[in-house]
Design a protein around this nucleic acid. Structure first.
Length: 261
DNA sequence: ATGGCCAATATGATTGGA
């Protein structure tokens, strides 16, 4: 089973890129973020015609998450628990059946958190705490659990081109990193880091300042695996060539291969 | 050249992204 996450920065702007990548890569399940599309306008037909079941949770203008799956959905649930007043479309969970039991997967678009001297940063930290509580509860089920998405967290210095320059940024502040590491301390495995300790494994390059041509990247898109899922991990990849396509997203797909199904 | 972007929104300046 091939599982991926990709922040596509507008599904309408990226539908051709997405279709081309799906055709080339043939992933089984894809978590998408920043669809920026209300549910009534989600372009499900071109994705269904490629053989995917499609689930989405969007809002006007901002945010928006989706899951594409070659497997039928048994359950789909939107919204991260823990704050009933949170209207931002940043979380979508789906359950599918495998021969070895249920596989639960969530598409996650964690808040950016900048500027840090505004209410945006405490919102990010609170969201990380809500995710921690959710993960702790779901891990008790001992299923295949995959939490994949744009975490907007740079876990370690090797995951950013200029660590010193990013130290005060919401993506790299110690408090942000600590809360991300607390997730892995629950027993979740960072799939890319389980397969490589190489520096420069970036998933995002800013549109500005020639970041791509200078390889000024960040690793902020992550696939976290429960112990049962991590036991099935065989390989990962970051499809960085997609960043050089016409009309690219500023993020590229992250892929994990799992011996499931 | 020592800078440099992109998407959505009743569309033209603003907001958000990271």
């Amino acid at each position: 089973m091939r599982v991926a996450t990709w922040n596509i920065n507008s599904i309408k702007q990226r539908i051709d890129n997405l279709a081309a990548w799906l055709t080339e890569r043939a992933p089984d399940i894809v978590c998408l973020q920043e669809t920026k599309c209300v549910d009534e306008a989600f372009p499900r037909e071109p994705l269904e015609s490629l053989g995917y079941n499609v689930a989405f949770h969007g809002q006007k203008t901002f945010n928006g998450v989706a899951i594409l799956s070659k497997y039928r959905f048994d359950e789909v649930t939107a919204r991260l628990p823990g704050d009933g007043a949170d209207e931002q479309a940043r979380f979508l969970e789906a359950v599918i059946s495998t021969p070895q039991g249920a596989l639960r997967i969530a598409s996650i678009y964690l808040p950016n958190g900048n500027p840090v001297n505004t209410e945006k940063y405490p919102y990010k930290l609170k969201w990380l705490e809500r995710l921690h509580h959710y993960a702790a509860e779901r891990l008790k089920l001992e299923e295949y659990l995959i939490l994949a998405g744009d975490y907007n967290v740079i876990p370690n210095p090797a995951d950013v081109y200029d660590p010193a320059g990013w130290i005060d940024d919401a993506l790299f502040r110690p408090q942000s990193r600590e809360k991300f590491h607390a997730l892995t301390h629950l027993g979740l495995t960072d799939a890319v880091r389980a397969t490589s300790d190489a520096p420069g494994l970036y998933t995002f390059w800013d549109y500005q300042a020639g970041a791509w041509s200078k390889n000024n990247g960040l690793r902020i898109d992550h696939i976290l695996l429960s112990p049962r899922a991590a036991d099935r991990l065989t390989a990962t990849a970051i499809d960085r060539q997609v960043r050089s396509w016409e009309k690219p997203s500023d993020h590229v797909p992250v892929v994990a291969e799992l011996a499931i199904g």
